[in-house]
């Protein structure tokens, strides 16, 4: 029992990353009808920005300028990384996607791939292939609860991720901005006629998605403190799968699918040899999509949706 619970705890943490990143894919996809394939690399950029902010703040502290307690450094790192990565996301939208808004969708998808590769190679050129170690900002403490090992880092990652997802869900459903986003998902050409500034809304969508990716990046740095330029590739692809699995336009769906993906990956590795993990995990997802081609909460494409 404790053995199974331990796997559940592991899966919750692993799923949090997929969920946080999947939200960014899902939002951009539903609002602008475009796959932002650079999103995995925006996650990487977020992690590196977090790394530089954190080391910078710690260096300030040890130089005696502003000595902050570590939890404050973490909070500041999260906020600054979110803000700066949002700016990166908005730039990507402005430079990469806005000029292509009326171009064929395939061109926009290619742009995404290109931007992703640019981020990776730029990082490689500027910082080298050297691995970077993310400083541990909170002292990791392990708790043994009924034979299950839980660390404070794990609790923090899962709880804050869930809170952010909840906040985003409320934002999309209850605010005017959220309403405008949902409206754009239905018809991007009529919405501006109602006085909605679609450029601002597109930028906001990218900013929100990138901000969440930055949180995922900083948390990733806390849980898996070896950073490298290609860290966003595989995680990004898998989170993209989660976004599709969740269904277009559903914040709840993307989050749930992210966690589901984490659970499938961990539990397949528990039962089968870990070599077969991805093969089995993604066959299961293929099967799910065969029966629910629009994902869990997605709506079938109809006249209501622009396509």
């Amino acid at each position: 029992m404790a053995y199974l619970l331990q796997h559940v705890v592991n899966a919750l943490q692993w799923g949090s990353f997929y969920a946080l990143i999947a939200l960014g894919y899902s939002m951009v996809y539903s609002v602008l009808m475009l796959f932002n394939f650079a999103h995995g690399d925006i996650f990487m950029v977020g992690a590196y920005i977090g790394l530089f902010v954190a080391t910078g703040l710690l260096a300030l502290g040890s130089a005696g300028a502003v000595a902050l307690p570590n939890w404050a450094v973490l909070v500041l790192t999260l906020i600054l990384a979110m803000a700066l990565t949002s700016v990166v996301g908005m730039l990507v939208e402005r430079v990469g996607y806005r000029p292509l808004r009326r171009a064929p969708r395939a061109s926009a998808a290619l742009t995404g791939l290109m931007i992703g590769i640019t981020f990776e190679t730029l990082n490689l050129a500027l910082l080298g292939a050297k691995r970077r170690s993310f400083p541990a900002l909170i002292e990791t403490t392990s708790y043994q609860v009924a034979g299950v090992s839980i660390t404070n880092t794990k609790i923090m990652i899962v709880v804050i991720s869930l809170l952010l997802m909840l906040a985003l869900d409320q934002f999309v459903r209850r605010t005017k901005w959220g309403m405008a986003m949902r409206a754009m998902a239905v018809d991007i050409f009529v919405v501006p006629l109602m006085g909605v500034p679609i450029n601002t809304m597109a930028a906001l969508t990218f900013a929100l998605g990138s901000g969440l990716a930055a949180v995922a990046g900083v948390f990733f740095g806390q849980a898996y403190p070896v950073l490298e330029p290609y860290m966003g590739m595989l995680v990004g692809w898998k989170a993209f799968v989660a976004a599709i699995l969740g269904g277009r336009g559903s914040v709840l769906g993307a989050a749930l699918a992210g966690f589901l993906l984490g659970f499938i990956e961990i539990f397949v590795a528990v039962v089968f040899p870990s070599t077969l993990r991805d093969l089995i995990a993604y066959s299961v997802i293929l099967l799910i999509l065969t029966f629910r081609p629009y994902g869990f909460f997605g709506e079938p494409y109809s006249a209501r949706l622009r396509l």
């Binding site: 053995y3 796997h7 692993w14 990733f220």
Partner: peptide, 11 residues
């Protein structure tokens, strides 16, 4: 490229 080994380590 795997980063999470928790399933294997728990086993």
């Amino acid at each position: 490229k795997d980063r999470d080994f928790s399933a294997q380590l728990t086993k």
